[in-house]
Design a protein around this nucleic acid. Sequence first.
DNA 1: TTGCAATTGAGATTTAGTTGCAAAAAGGAG
DNA 2: CTCCTTTTTGCAACTAAATCTCAATTGCAA
Lengths: 142, 142
Amino acid sequence: MLTIAEGKFRNYLKQKGLKFTPERQLVLEEVFSLHKHFEVEDIFIRIRKKGNHISRATIYRTFPLLVESGLIKEAVHCQGGVRFEHIYGHEHHDHLVCLKCGKIIEFKEDRIEELQDAICKRYDFTPVEHKLGIRGYCKRCR
Amino acid sequence: MLTIAEGKFRNYLKQKGLKFTPERQLVLEEVFSLHKHFEVEDIFIRIRKKGNHISRATIYRTFPLLVESGLIKEAVHCQGGVRFEHIYGHEHHDHLVCLKCGKIIEFKEDRIEELQDAICKRYDFTPVEHKLGIRGYCKRCR
DNA sequence: TTGCAATTGAGATTTAGTTGCAAAAAGGAG
DNA sequence: CTCCTTTTTGCAACTAAATCTCAATTGCAA
Ligand SMILES: [Mn+2]
Ligand SMILES: [Mn+2]
Ligand SMILES: [Zn+2]
Ligand SMILES: [Zn+2]
């Protein structure tokens, strides 16, 4: 999984004339060692905890490259920072976000996706990505 | 329209033990004189241009009250600030956002809304609000 | 190995939004 | 109307996320 993601990242970088540096590798590895939503600060802290050195600026500069290369994307705008998630190795899905406990439930509904396509056709609009977030209260917080 | 919105706002404030001040009235009027998406800074500038005095802090403090009272809501997180829109006097809708020119197309699709309800039932989730934003390229920018 | 463009880290800067506080004012009680 | 309490205001100081600047470093292709 990581190796394939790394291959994609290397290709992307090369094709853009950019370099695969040790710092970018650290970020990539950390991002793909997680299996949930994450934000810049999470990755920063985890890399530092492992004794590796990296600056926040580098992570902030690396994330857009990971997005551009199709490996991760913005998932939800929670209170505070932007949260990211993997694309590579994960099917597209949308989110239910609990306003009380912050729990995030992922769901997939093909019929919604189809209707979205139909709407884009109706407005002669070429979709690149979409985000559907439903906020409310989960079973336990209601 | 404004008068009814003002009534709702006054009720909300009273019920919370808050006051209907001239500044809050200015914000309310300005917000409802617009008929498109807006952000805090827009309202600030428009009020100032008319020669009225108000501070940004007051507007930042008033917006959550307008949201809480059900008159406006966050529409989209564009590059930069949060954009708001009216709820009062407008039907619920979602957005297509052009990544090139920033144009926003509003759409309404009841079948998507129904499917969302079904999903919430499936996960025993009580929805409060949702936001569906499709980003891509409009007819002219493609 | 060399040269150059890309990258890095550190700290400064920007930007959106929040907060503390003293002075002002709303609005209910009397 | 006047008084009194509570809320509100403006300003400036502050915060936090993200971006930028720049000198020193490094990747990598020739
Ligand atoms: Mn997810
Ligand atoms: Mn809208
Ligand atoms: Zn919950
Ligand atoms: Zn466009």
